[in-house]
Write a protein that binds this DNA or RNA. Structure first.
Length: 480
RNA sequence: GGUCCCAUCGACUAGGGGUUAGGUCGUCACUCUUUCACAGUGAAAACACGGGUUCGAAUCCCGUUGGGACCGCCA
């Protein structure tokens, strides 16, 4: 590409990062990095009623945890700032009056109530609800008069009628819309703030954005934006509208049907690599018969292309996320995994200052973990001071004559050891088998139950080693 | 309701005129492991429908149906 690629992620600061936003942010990031361009963060905070304290910091923090970084933005700075729209009000006003002057926009004075009434009537008639453009009929004098009287006013886009607005979307192809059904969108609100549509067009142009990559929900407002670019005499950036991420019932992914905040997933112990990998594959794949499923961020950067983004929406499938996360957990560098897991041990009764022990525990249970917050479920057997039987029926197994014989023999052997290791445990059990004649299920089952209170779980020798000699012996002897 | 978008197994998807329509998750079975899980092997499971175009359509075109998004002084 001749010019440097410049893309932007432009969220409104609502306090958390939606999974759908994450994917938009990811795709922008991948696209920018793939072409060696710039990834820009712009905060769309023109709705004063929606301000959330600390939202921007949180947003940047979450994205950075996932490895999505910005070259320009509120924190990174840059030559195209400010990157908060609320700090660019003068710019919008200036361009808006230019529109007014050129006759591409006009003043309107309806109150919210009047507009609501208008919509209600339109709905009754079964028509599309949109501004009926009545403000266009006001004479210059009428407008002057109202303005002078101090009546609240907005500025609306004067949509040229009877035209077909068309554009080429990088993922959807050519899209055309009849301008007659394009709303005379409010550009400047009565509080002096611009709407998304105005601010977005001005900023994208001023910030030199070359490609707009955003969710499909924006597609119907593109004509407004095109008209705006045209009115200003600006070049329209390339656009790519990516399909939505859906609930199980195929509606737009929403809070009501489960977690949608990236922070929720991070908190539950989904690994950043797994989350990024999974989200990237929701709507993108390398194609051409390439059947890989695992991609590190570098792989994604190298292979991502907007042309391979899916045209239809994708259901967010937690089962597959779990599978992928579990795969990452199983393969993860054990030391790093140990560090990441530490917070999840709080309240389990396991002393995390003994890193080596935590490491061993993690290594034996990681195969069971879909996510890190499941750790407590699997470590009870290591922290308990007295084994609890999972169910009462297990007591019978313990009380069998052969069981007592084996348990007693093993307890004796372990007692003689200096230090209990998995290997020593194994040989001790082998000796018990030889000496008592108890073998097979009759041997292993009671030992497992005596040591853990459960019929199943990780490998017994590993458990015994983690338990240590003292505890193992004590647990065994209890059933004699 | 209007406009726009979309349509391959239950889910994510590959394929894109001639394929036994491939892979992954999930499900089921078997093997392995003296447990569960892991791993391995296998199975069930899809081109929404109707018309064209073509020697030949899952693939291209049109329509139908179905689903979704948007229709705010939100973004």
């Amino acid at each position: 590409m001749a010019n440097e690629v410049r893309v932007r992620f432009a969220p409104s600061p609502t306090g958390y990062v939606h999974i759908g936003s994450l994917r938009t942010a990811l795709f922008n990031f991948l696209f920018a990095r793939h072409y060696g361009g710039k990834n820009i963060l712009r905060i769309e905070d023109t709705d004063q009623t929606r301000k959330v304290e600390g939202a921007v910091e949180n947003l940047i923090g979450s994205l950075e945890r996932l490895g999505i970084t910005f070259d320009e933005g509120p924190v990174a700075g840059g030559d195209f700032g400010p990157y908060f729209q609320s700090e660019r009000l003068d710019i919008y006003k200036k361009y808006c009056s230019e529109l007014l002057q050129k006759g591409y926009a006009y003043y309107a004075f309806e109150t919210s109530e009047e507009l609501e009434e208008m919509r209600r009537l339109q709905q009754l008639e079964g028509k599309q609800t949109m501004y009926d453009r009545r403000g266009r009929d006001l004479s210059e004098d009428e407008v002057k008069e109202k303005l002078a009287s101090g009546a609240p006013s907005v500025i609306r886009l004067k949509v040229p009628l009877g035209e077909e607005v068309r554009f080429n979307d990088l993922v959807k192809g050519t899209i055309k819309i009849d301008s007659d059904i394009v709303d005379d969108q409010i550009l400047l609100k009565s509080d002096g703030f611009p709407t998304y549509h105005l601010a977005n067009v001005i900023d994208d142009h001023l910030m030199g954005i070359t490609h707009i990559i955003r969710g499909e929900e924006w597609i119907t407002s593109v004509p407004k934006h095109i008209l705006l670019y045209r009115a200003f005499g600006w070049e329209v950036p390339a656009m790519a509208h990516v399909p939505l991420i859906l609930n199980r019932d195929k509606t737009k992914l929403s809070k009501r049907q489960g977690d949608v905040a990236v922070e929720d997933y991070l908190r539950k112990g989904y690994l950043r690599e797994a989350l990024v990998n999974f989200i990237a594959l929701l709507g993108w794949n390398p194609g051409e018969g390439d059947e890989r499923e695992f991609f590190a961020m570098d792989d994604l950067i190298r292979e991502f292309s907007i042309e391979r983004v899916q045209t239809s929406g994708a259901v967010f499938n937690p089962d597959k996320l779990n599978w992928m996360n579990n795969s990452y957990i199983k393969d993860y560098d054990l030391d790093k995994l140990t560090e990441l897991s530490l917070p999840y041990f709080s309240g389990t009764g396991i002393d995390t200052s003994d890193r080596e022990r935590v490491r061993m525990i993690l290594n034996t249970i990681r195969v069971y973990l879909n996510k890190l917050d499941e750790i407590p479920d699997h470590v009870k057997i290591f922290s308990t001071e007295e084994v609890q039987l999972e169910k009462d029926e297990l007591r019978q197994i313990l009380e069998a004559e052969s069981s007592r014989k084996a348990i007693g023999a093993l307890a004796g052997k372990l007692e003689d050891l200096d230090k209990l290791t998995a290997d020593l445990y194994k040989s001790a059990v082998a000796e018990v088998q030889a000496e008592t004649g108890v073998k097979g299920k009759a041997l292993f089952k009671p030992l497992r139950i005596a040591l853990t209170g459960s019929e199943n779980g990780p490998e017994l020798p590993a458990i015994a080693e983690i338990l240590g000699k003292e505890k193992s012996v004590r647990f065994l002897k209890r059933w004699l």
